[in-house]
Amino acid sequence: MAEITINAKKYQVNSGITILEACNRLGISIPTLCHDDRLEPYAACRLCVVEVKGKKNLQTSCSTKIRDGMVVETHNKRVINARKEVLDLLFSNHPEDCLTCEKAGGCKLQDYCYEYGVEEGTYVGEKKDYHIDDSNPFYTYDPNKCILCGKCVRVCDELQCTNAIGLGNRGFDSKVVTPFDLGLATSNCVSCGNCVAVCPVGALTPKKKEKYRTWEIRKVKTTCSYCGVGCQIELLVKGDKVVGVEPARGTPNDGLLCVKGRFGYSFINHSDRLKAPLIKRNGEFEEATWEEAYDLIIDKISEIKEEYGSESFAGLTSARCTNEENYLFQKMFRALIGTNNVDHCARL
C-alpha cells in the first residue's frame, strides 16, 4: 500500500498501479481519449495529465505509477488549462458537424469539450481533408474525424491480431491507414468491428440500418447466439427493435466480438424469422405452443424407438451451443434414447 495525496486529500492505494487507475477506483474522474485498460499505456492524447509535485512538466496519469508520498493535483488551473488547450487543438482539426454526426451523444470529444467548456476550435488553419472510406460493408471510416488516439490500431494489432490497419506518415499528416492507403476493402480486415467499438469519436461508425441517437436506446445484455464461446453482448434497443450490437466487457470476450456477433443482428427484425414453433397439420405449417411442440417430439421419439429401436436414431449438435448444452445433448442420446450415434458439427 502507498499513501498518496490527491487534491489535498490523503488516500491509501495499492502500490504499483497508475495514477489513473487509482483515481478511477477513488471515483475521481480524469478524462482520457487514448487509454484502454486492456492495452499498454500509450500516453498520446495528453488529456489525462495531472500535476505531480516535484515534476517540472505535467504527467500523464495513465503512464505514471503511484509512489508513496506522491502529491497529485488532478483539477487545478494549470491542469485544466492544458486539457482545454488539447481539446481546442483537437477540435480545431475536426469537422464541426456534431448535429448530424452518428456519434453525437456517445462521443468522448464532445463530452469533454462540454465538460471543459470548449465551445469551438479556435485555431484557424489547415484541416484534414481526406476521402471517407466507405468500402467496408459494415462500418464507415472517416479519417477527418480521427483524433489519432491509436486505439483502433492497437486493438487490431494487440487484441484482434489482424493488423489490418496501422499508422501511416508522420506528424500533422499522420493517418490511420490500411497498407498503401488503398481502403479497407483491399486489406485483410475481417470486419470484426473491434476498432469501431473502441473509437472514442465518430471516425469509425457502424453502418446503421436505422437511425438512432444514443439517448434513444436502451442496452440489453445478453449472450451471443452464434457460437459456443458465449460472448457477452449488449443489444441496442430502440423502442422494441434491436438496432445494433456492442460488445460487453468482462469474460469471456472482454469487449471484443467477431463480425457475426457484432454486425449479424438483422435477422432479429427479419419478417421470415420464426418466433413460435410450427407444426405441420394437414400439409400446412401452423403455429403452435412450445408445450404442443415438445409433446409432439416426445411422442414421435417414443414411437420410433418402440418400432425401430434405439439405433435408428442419430443426433448431430451445433457449435452454436455451449459445452454444457452439447453435454446434455449427448447425455440425452446415450442415456435416454440409448444410442451412441451422436456427433457434433465441429468434428466434421
Partner: peptide, 12 residues
Amino acid sequence: GKCVPCREGTKR
C-alpha cells in the same frame, strides 16, 4: 505525430 500538443500545437 503521436501526441496532440506536438502534432497539432506546433502546426498551429
